[in-house]
Every structure is written in structure tokens, then in C-alpha cells.
């Protein structure tokens, strides 16, 4: 078994038993199984998504990494591959999808656009990096990153998973994780965490009573009244 495999290198397994027995720690077992079945969410945004499809197809074959199971539902996926330009119109949905993913969840920002807006950064409908809203684990530069670069990014993610410890991971800590507030589409994109700043910078209007109601409505409705079909 390779050094990245299940067996801990410190423990010597006799030669004749190497393919049957592995001595390891729980951490390592846990991470080893997680890292070899990272299911991505079937989720393509722009040009980079085509390279992602190419990476899943026969020439590069994501299945070799246990990642071929693309899940259309966020509730069954482990990694969100943000493959393309994130626009303001789309970010509420992305945040909602992220909130729906069960822990442990990872995010890969594929391409310049997902990392920071890329060549379209100056555009008025472009979010300057998906990490403004959701935490990103691995960044893959390139425009578009070739499928091989994407595979390299996935291997980087595997390394990250490997280095996590059961004792520290956030999803076994006490208390539920906070969902990320879904941004609202107003005259421009409104990040609800920055509401105070936005009001202050655009000159405040008082009457706080009504305001509280509006916030609740906004949080409940998002901007989509009907559920996605």
C-alpha cells in the first residue's frame, strides 16, 4: 500500500500480510475513506464547467479519485465545485445551496472567476470572488484551469482532508453551525451581514420599527417565493 494509503507508516506490517492487514488510527481511517469518496455537486456555472465535464469524461476520468458520483442535490454532496463566474443574480442560490449541504462540506473555487471575478471582475453583475460569501478550501488559478489542473486541485483538497483531525473538525463540535445569511437582490446585491455599513454609507433613514419587519420578510422570502422544482 502506498504511503498515502491507509496504513500508518510507523507500524511495520509483515510483507506477506500487507494486502490484508492495515494498522492505522481512527483519524486516518476516517480521512482515508472520506478523501476517496468526495462527491461533487453537479453544478456548473460557466466556461470552467465545460472543463469540469471534460475532467469527468473518459480522458481524465474523475472516477479514479472516487469522485465520479456527481450529485444534483446539495444534500448528498461533499464538495461544491464553483466552476465559473459567480454573478450577483446567482449568488443567493449558491449560498442557499451551500447552506443545504451537510457537513463536512468543502468548496473549490475553480478558475480565476470563482476566485476573484477573473477577467470579468469589473463587471457590474459579477461577484468579486465566491469567498466573499462562502468559505473556500482550495483555489485553482487559471482561465480555464485545464482538466489536469482541476485534478491537481482535487488532490490538494484530498491532502487537506487528510490533515484534518476528528478532534478538531467543526462538525463534531458542540452547537449547530450558523447558516450563512442569503444575500438579497436590491438596487444592487445586499450582503445582509453588511447591512449596517450600507445604511451608514448611503445616509441613514430612521424608523427602526418597520425596518425589523422588512428584514424578517427579506430573510424568509429571499427573492424566490416558490421552491425550486
Amino acid at each position: 500500500m502506498s504511503p498515502e494509503g491507509l496504513s500508518k507508516p510507523e507500524y511495520q506490517v509483515p510483507q506477506e500480510m500487507q494486502n490484508q492487514v492495515a494498522l492505522t488510527t481512527l483519524d486516518r481511517l476516517y480521512n482515508w475513506s472520506r478523501k476517496n469518496s468526495v462527491w461533487p455537486m453537479m453544478f456548473g456555472l460557466a466556461c470552467c464547467a465545460i472543463e469540469m465535464i471534460a475532467a469527468a469524461a473518459s480522458r481524465y476520468d474523475l472516477a479514479r479519485f472516487g469522485m465520479e458520483v456527481m450529485r444534483p442535490s446539495p444534500r448528498q454532496s461533499d464538495v461544491m465545485l464553483v466552476s465559473g463566474t459567480v454573478t450577483k443574480k446567482m449568488i443567493p442560490q449558491i449560498v442557499r445551496l451551500y447552506n443545504q449541504m451537510p457537513e463536512p462540506k468543502y468548496v473549490i473555487a475553480m478558475g480565476a472567476c470563482a476566485s476573484s471575478g477573473g477577467p470579468f471582475k469589473e463587471g457590474y453583475n459579477v461577484v468579486a470572488g465566491v469567498d466573499k460569501f462562502i468559505p473556500v478550501d482550495v483555489y485553482i488559478p487559471g482561465c480555464p484551469p485545464t482538466p489536469q489542473a482541476l485534478l491537481h486541485g482535487l488532490m490538494t483538497l484530498q491532502k487537506k482532508i487528510e490533515s484534518q483531525s476528528l478532534k478538531e473538525v467543526s462538525w463534531y463540535q458542540k452547537g449547530p453551525g450558523e447558516p450563512i445569511p442569503v444575500p438579497v437582490l436590491g438596487p444592487d446585491l445586499i450582503d445582509m451581514r453588511k447591512a449596517a455599513l450600507i445604511r451608514e454609507k448611503s445616509q441613514p433613514v430612521t424608523e427602526p420599527e418597520e425596518a425589523a419587519v422588512a428584514v424578517e420578510e427579506a430573510a424568509q422570502n429571499g427573492e424566490l417565493p416558490a421552491k425550486e422544482g
Partner: peptide, 13 residues
């Protein structure tokens, strides 16, 4: 060289 992926951006990018 396309093997550039990493855990951070910011300054390093």
C-alpha cells in the same frame, strides 16, 4: 506550469 492550486488567495495570488 498549471499545478498552481492552493489553500489561499489574497497576497499569494
Amino acid at each position: 506550469d498549471f499545478e498552481l492550486s492552493g489553500y489561499t488567495r489574497g497576497e499569494s495570488h
